[in-house]
Design a protein around this nucleic acid. Structure first.
Length: 781
DNA sequence: AGCAGACTTT
């Protein structure tokens, strides 16, 4: 072969055909043999080839061996490092170029250099340098400067550079538009875009991909659709960036069909495309389809990255897939991705929380090398949503001790429900006070949590006045206030608010009707409830879900329309679950219909045989009509099943301390005084006619022991503690996690009379206000 | 002369 005359064209084609690292290394060896390894042009080419294949260290060593480095070599090595996100090293090369070499930087040097600047100080220094050397009028340098300032939020400086440019091409405009977009300044971005159009410039693929996320952010579907038309008209859909941005935009609007169509139409799909379509389904509550797409992506050999796995973790949480979740956790650990980015750690914490494995969630949380506010919010929400309110509060208190962690909206909407759950009014009010200072209480979601908290803590007036202070264009705060009125037994008022809501043009959703129907059922408003149930379907097109049916069965059954309730259950298009049969059984208990009750309970135990509450209901139903053999049968059934009880607890606030009592608690410091007080009270109660109702005791034991068991129910311990710890006559507020026991309900009426105290018991269902031996619920609990 | 550069998506 003759290399001498035509070697350059042959070498050119050799360089062009080097698509693998092996070929490149062979070429390197060949150059060495040919004695050309010191040729600066060829070496620089080689350096770039290595870099493009991802072999940065080989690039580096090739660079080091060039004796007479020219500015091209320097520009290449700087760009190579920037390209692989090794910004510090890139800046070191820039320093060497300035101080050690005799080469003068040129137009090409600065764009990568500016990209490498990781702080504003470096950036400003470089800007000065550019001005000194007179490169500021280059369009590429200008765009890089705009980008640099935008990255650090310095939009003023960015705009100054933009305005000062003597020549602007589409790239310059794009840089300015994206600067505004990424800082959330949608209005300014659109303004610049319009000016650009005014100068007769057309949007290109970059403009479009920058502006599309803004349409989603500012909830502007019309602009989004117009841009999609523009994209089709100008053939921009070929571009993978544009199509990916379209998928994401449609996903934000919940238009999965459109996302899918864009995705299907794409000829070239990259990892971002797959991540986007998977996230689209994951974010719109279709984890099954999302998982299918993930498998498809794996099948065609695209390797998942960190963001894929973030979506995957959420998918598995939604699907409650324990097994695969564990292996995803393992995958993350093997790749050491927890160190790479907090989002993946947060995703794992969230995944375990959704699976109900708070132990695993907190273990991952503790392993996180870095925790942001999202990590804490995820943990707190996880505890709160799994019913572990005390743990949620502990976590929140720990968070407050961390410096650099500033609570945000997400924090409040996770901690407030935990306070509501325990009835911690004082703590909730403290948060409210803090929120007033920064006006966050006007945020609809935070405000709704506050309304809910006041409602559940018995401060209906405060809930109402807060409700009227906040914006109420969406159903969210209305649902909360209607529900609060409902649990306080103010059904008529709840209905009135519902009418007000419609009058103000707010659209009711399926949650509104759950709040409303349960309000009607607590107040015995049968016709009104029926009206709502019909209206929901006919006028709002909402298909009733299990919760709606549950409320209706409860409403009809409680009011004595047992046949109607049963025929509703029979005609349901959905499979009745335990809550439906439970509601029917509860109604049968109240009205003494043993026949239907027995039937309901047999269906009930088919779908949920582990809930002790239902056995108690059944036993009580038999006892109320004197069917003692039925009571005995239920007891032995419960014993045979070896039921593990949901631990019942009640809390009472004394001063600023929340005391929590579990059933049968013997470890409280005031234990002896509490039981003494209960003994004295029971004696007085009996003299007034109280007879213990043992049908609420499922244990098969002697009578005196049954009385002992009733006496040590958590609500009674809490009441007794309240009595001995507060001045005579002051009201007592109790929270119970389950429904209040029927015998305790009866006993509390006596206690309110004996001690002349108002006793408010909020159980998992509603409020009971005991006064002068009566209860506000009229014994329909 | 060759070699190298900006603005865009999850």
């Amino acid at each position: 072969m003759r290399f001498s005359s035509s070697s350059s064209s042959i070498l050119d084609s050799l360089f062009n055909s080097c698509t693998t690292i092996h070929l490149t290394k062979s070429l390197h060896a060949l150059l060495f043999v040919l004695g050309k390894s010191h040729n600066v042009v060829l070496s620089t080419k080689l350096l770039n080839l290595y870099a493009s294949l991802g072999y940065l260290s080989l690039s580096h060593s090739t660079f080091k061996h060039i004796n007479n480095k020219n500015i091209y070599s320097w520009n290449s090595i700087i760009a190579a490092y920037v390209h692989s996100h090794r910004y510090t090293q890139a800046l070191n090369f820039v320093n060497d170029l300035f101080s050690l070499s005799s080469q003068r930087p040129d137009f090409y040097t600065f764009p990568p250099t500016l990209k490498a600047c990781q702080c504003l100080v470096d950036g400003r220094k470089m800007h000065c340098c550019i001005l000194k050397m007179g490169f500021e009028n280059d369009v590429f340098v200008g765009a890089s400067l705009i980008n640099l300032y935008s990255r650090f939020g310095g939009l003023d400086s960015a705009y100054k550079v933009f305005v000062g440019m003597p020549l602007r091409d589409v790239g310059s405009w794009n840089a300015m538009i994206s600067g505004f977009c990424q800082n959330g300044n949608a209005a300014e971005a659109l303004d610049v875009l319009n000016k650009m159009k005014g100068e007769g410039l057309k949007m290109d693929k970059v403009t479009v991909s920058s502006i599309l996320p803004v349409c989603a952010q500012s909830n502007d579907i019309v602009s989004g659709l117009l841009i999609h038309l523009y994209v089709i008209k100008h053939g921009l859909e070929e571009d993978v960036f544009v199509s990916n941005a379209l998928i994401n935009m449609y996903s934000k609007f919940g238009r999965l069909g459109d996302s899918q169509r864009v995705f299907d139409y794409m000829k070239v799909k990259d990892l971002v495309s797959w991540n986007s379509i998977i996230a689209a389904y994951e974010q719109n509550n279709d984890p099954t389809t999302a998982l299918g797409l993930f498998k498809e992506m794996q099948f065609i050999g695209i390797r998942p990255d960190l963001l894929t796995v973030v979506s995957l973790a959420s998918i598995l949480g939604q699907l409650s897939d324990q097994m695969v979740s564990k292996s995803v956790h393992g995958f993350v650990m093997r790749h050491e991705w927890l160190e790479k980015d907090v989002v993946i750690g947060n995703a794992l914490v969230n995944m375990y929380a959704k699976l109900g494995s708070m132990d695993c969630a907190s273990t991952v949380f503790e392993q996180l090398p870095l925790r942001d506010i999202i990590s804490w919010n995820t943990l707190i929400t996880g505890y709160a949503q799994n019913g572990l309110a005390s743990e949620a509060i502990d976590a929140y208190n720990m968070m407050e001790q961390c410096e650099n962690i500033i609570p945000n909206q997400g924090t409040w909407v996770s901690i407030l429900p935990a306070y509501s759950h325990l009835g911690a009014l004082q703590q909730g009010m403290k948060i409210h006070g803090r929120l007033i200072k920064n006006s966050l209480y006007l945020d609809v979601f935070v405000a709704t949590c506050l309304i809910d908290m006041y409602g559940k803590c018995g401060r209906l007036d405060d809930a109402m006045s807060l409700f009227y202070e906040i914006p109420r264009e969406t159903s969210v705060p209305w649902n909360a206030i209607i529900s609060a009125l409902g649990i306080h037994g103010h059904g008529e008022q709840a209905l009135q608010l519902f009418k007000d809501m419609l009058a103000e043009g707010v659209t009711a959703d399926h949650i509104t009707f759950i709040s409303l129907l349960s309000a009607c059922s607590h107040s015995g408003l049968v016709d009104e409830g029926q009206w709502c149930f019909d209206m929901m379907q006919k006028e709002f097109g909402i298909k009733p879900g299990l919760k709606h049916y549950g409320c209706m069965v409860d409403l009809l059954g409680r009011a004595g329309y047992l046949e109607k309730a049963y025929s509703l259950v029979s005609s349901m298009p959905l499979q009745p679950d335990a809550s439906i049969w439970g509601a029917l059984l509860g109604a049968c208990r109240i009205h003494g219909n043993v026949e239907l009750g027995t039937f309901a309970s047999s269906r009930l135990l088919e779908v949920d045989s582990d809930n002790v509450g239902y056995y108690v209901l059944l036993s009580n139903m038999y006892a109320n009509v004197g069917k003692w053999e039925g009571v005995a049968k239920v007891r032995s059934l419960a014993r045979d099943r070896g039921l593990t009880k949901t631990p019942g607890w009640s809390s009472v606030v004394v001063g600023s301390i929340i005391e929590v009592f579990y059933t049968g608690n013997q470890t409280h410091p005031k234990c002896i005084e509490i039981y003494n007080e209960l003994r004295v009270l029971t004696a007085k109660m009996k003299s007034l006619g109280y007879v213990p109702d043992y049908s609420f005791v499922l244990q098969d034991v002697e009578e005196d022991e049954k009385e002992q068991i009733l006496t040590s129910h958590s609500e009674r311990l809490a009441i007794a503690f309240g009595i001995i710890s507060t001045p005579p006559g002051s009201p007592i507020r109790i929270f119970k996690n389950l429904r209040v026991c029927g015998d305790c309900h009866n006993a509390t009426k006596y206690i309110s009379r004996i001690t002349e105290r108002d006793i408010v018991v909020r159980d998992s269902n509603r409020f009971h206000h005991f006064k002068d031996g009566m209860c506000s619920c009229g014994d329909y609990w």
